[in-house]
Write a protein that binds this DNA or RNA. Sequence first.
DNA 1: TATAATCCTGTTAGCGCTAACGGAAACGTA
DNA 2: TACGTTTCCGTTAGCGCTAACAGGATTATA
Lengths: 339, 339
Amino acid sequence: MDRVKMADVAREAGVSAMTVSRVINGKGYVSDETRRRVLRVIERLGYRPSGIARGLATRRTGTIGLVVPDVANPFFADVARGVEESAYAEGYNVFLCNTDEDPQRELAALGSLEERQVDGLILCSSRLTEDELHKVVARHTSFVLVNRRLVGARTHSVLLDDEAAGRLATQHLLRIGRRAVGLVAGPETSHSGQLRAKGYRAALAADGLPYYPEWVRPCAPTASGGRQATLELLSNHPELTGLVCYNDLVAVGALQAAKDRGCQVPADLAIVGHDDIPLAALVTPALTTCRMPRYELGTRAVGLLLEQLDSSAEPSAEIVLSPELVVRASAPGPPETEP
Amino acid sequence: MDRVKMADVAREAGVSAMTVSRVINGKGYVSDETRRRVLRVIERLGYRPSGIARGLATRRTGTIGLVVPDVANPFFADVARGVEESAYAEGYNVFLCNTDEDPQRELAALGSLEERQVDGLILCSSRLTEDELHKVVARHTSFVLVNRRLVGARTHSVLLDDEAAGRLATQHLLRIGRRAVGLVAGPETSHSGQLRAKGYRAALAADGLPYYPEWVRPCAPTASGGRQATLELLSNHPELTGLVCYNDLVAVGALQAAKDRGCQVPADLAIVGHDDIPLAALVTPALTTCRMPRYELGTRAVGLLLEQLDSSAEPSAEIVLSPELVVRASAPGPPETEP
DNA sequence: TATAATCCTGTTAGCGCTAACGGAAACGTA
DNA sequence: TACGTTTCCGTTAGCGCTAACAGGATTATA
């Protein structure tokens, strides 16, 4: 039992395949009577056009490739959701490739998507070297980087202002009177982590406070990484009254470490995370955190990509999305002051 | 600048396009010398075959469609990861469609995937009616249902034993001496929820305990739904010493409700969740839960799908995956007994 | 040496659709 | 009425690859 082809519909409707194509694509001219006749046959035969054949003829597949390091990470899941819903609304389908944080997997996925002739590519938090990334970008006319910049390339990017996030988190602690504020910094190789640390230092300087490197600890980007780094920090520096954490997962580890040491949160130690993943609101005490608009990362990336598809030789564009402080029990806001 | 075609490679290598195809696909006979010459030209020109053209000629696209209700839900994210990694290992790419729990979106996604001529479809936790589902299945030769059964259809399914999960969770509480065990049941329309409730009742009966309907409360499948239902249960039935919860999110809500009422967990009230999402290990106290092998749901679904693709007219197969109890602080195990 | 099988390569037709163009009829305007 | 424009439909060629077959050369065996 073969699939119904346009030629089958054409024969039954007594028109050419090209007329059927015109009806389906709403192009050119078709009389109302002819259109009705064709649509009736389409309905009766249950015809569905072949996107494959269409892609070959038009050199457009109506697909977008999205490459993410780990779809089970709530951060990337939200980006994927943003991409998928925006793309779907514009009639595109998304090929999602998960690379398990492996650059080799990433290169393979990109190659595979090229063979499938996706109309454009969105590459999220790439783990490739700058060299590799330049080569990849050169092969595609429509490409958007998410959460990564590439200097010297005609590439669109959607970024998060990680420096502002680090500053905002630190400022909040300073504003509620915490003067001994440490940083659980995440992986030393993390570009986001470095920018958040820069924001931390900038907030201290803006308040005229000294920066103590011994109050800063790198860690794995996991709850247990955060727990361990916090235990070490608190045991060497019991004077700390606040902690800025690389992300919410690390902050949950810090909560656990505080409990391990009989430290009350927020009374003895106030804690601030980053990202506002769903977990942040569900732990006790709920986390104060810098919310990063992940879903919007996805939707804006699609926006940029579609602009590229609709026009040619655009100069590269860069969108930077700003964080927003979400105040919860782990670091409550300052007391209300009378106006 | 046009993409390099097989014909370009053929011209430079001084062979026909068909020989290039043979080299690329490792089919038929090609002399070593010719193969080397062709591969050199492929490398030099940076040729990548068109998967689109190949799909049209071979009627195989090397793609699998996966439809999930919410990719940001950790349950489905893990299924997606399992599918993607298994498929990738077999040389397939996955089209992931997110339906936002909307049956109309689901039907649209399925139609779209049909046009793209995916080689097979995996439909996860479908929200379609039985009628609708029958119609969808009839259009595809290769189809796998995940976490849903369809009676009267030649369809493969991969299922979770939700009844066993409910039984296991309840048995654990009974084993640690909790005789007044309630159930926060999740949505009344949830098939999984109904099976877990059945398992709860079976475990009570197996211990010769009476079933009290007033100890059972439906709720939304969210933390706040769980919190509210638990508050109501505890206020009407302060005699309860244990709670089985529909899933981990609902169980976190129950933790919050217990704290609201000054109830110590597990001393006054032991709590068990379902699914073992990452959150379960990160809250305090960490949740005892029934771990459902979501990643394996995905990998087994791909396995079944590939079997279908490799042979014809297979009878329908059904795989049922079993839960596993993960004991944590919210409901610790029984004290060790001397052998 | 004759025959059959294997190796190697090229040619042909087709997968299912669409861009581009052409021809005819109908319509609008001067 | 003549001319230009619009509407309507069909034909042609092609998108980039591959299944199937054919023809010639080489190898193995009786």
